[in-house]
Amino acid sequence: MTPQAKRRAFLVAALLVAGSALAVISAGGIGDNLVYYWTPSQVHENADKAVGATIRLGGVVQEGSVDWRPDSQSLTFTVGDGAHDTEHTLVVHAKSAPPQMFREGIGVVVEGTLTADGSFRADKVMVKHSNEYRAPTDGGDVKDLYATVEEL
């Protein structure tokens, strides 16, 4: 092989490797093994596997469910798949102050374990911001901001 033919063979091989890797990943070949968090429904479905293991749970903080007691640093709230009409919800207990953006109706990802009584004990509470960037409105309805979070 001439050096040129060799180089072009390398080009074809590299493009093939790159193309097939991308095809496999985009077709979901790796997606099933790459789970960053489970939704409350998925936790319910896999409750037997989930108990005791360290997992992440992601969902939306339900309206009226937040109970924060600063004196005892204890935080309790309910997480659902979406903001409303959620089939499955989970009660989450945490022992630390939440990030400042934490509130009802916002997306969260919590890290911790599912306990035998069916509630979730979180070591870490992380808040998810939507892809929307809005100027503050004067006392406006912040619920409008969560349109995309509800897709969780």
Partner: peptide, 12 residues
């Protein structure tokens, strides 16, 4: 888009 993430989806 492909996976659950904490990072938000692309802004438009």
């Amino acid at each position: 888009r492909w996976w659950n993430s904490l990072h938000q989806t692309q802004s438009t």
